[in-house]
């Protein structure tokens, strides 16, 4: 498992690259779906990214807002899968 800070940076970089958003708009606590940073296709591609980058597969029952709503939540989700 990578250090948490590195994991956060990778996820943030991925979101910034896929949305062309400004770096100051995406903090670790930003509610990325509530704020409309990512939509449903964005979520699908994020799931693909987590699989490719971290080897983590998301199951149907894990598709809940608590696992994905912010970078912090995604990191917690990844940690729970290790």
């Amino acid at each position: 498992m990578l250090p948490v800070i590195e994991t956060k940076n990778k996820i943030r970089d991925y979101i910034l690259e896929s949305t062309f958003d400004d770096v100051e708009n995406i903090t670790d606590d930003t509610l990325i779906f509530e704020k409309g940073v990512l939509d449903s296709m964005g979520l699908l591609f994020l799931i693909e990214f987590l699989k490719e980058e971290f080897g983590v597969t998301t199951n149907d029952d894990e598709l809940v807002v608590e696992n994905f709503e912010s970078i912090n939540n995604i990191v917690t989700f990844l940690e729970s899968k290790q």
Binding site: F33, D39, S40, L43, D60, L63, V65, F68
Partner: peptide
């Protein structure tokens, strides 16, 4: 749910 819908 506040998460965007995903298709199965």
């Amino acid at each position: 749910s506040t998460l965007p819908p995903i298709f199965s």
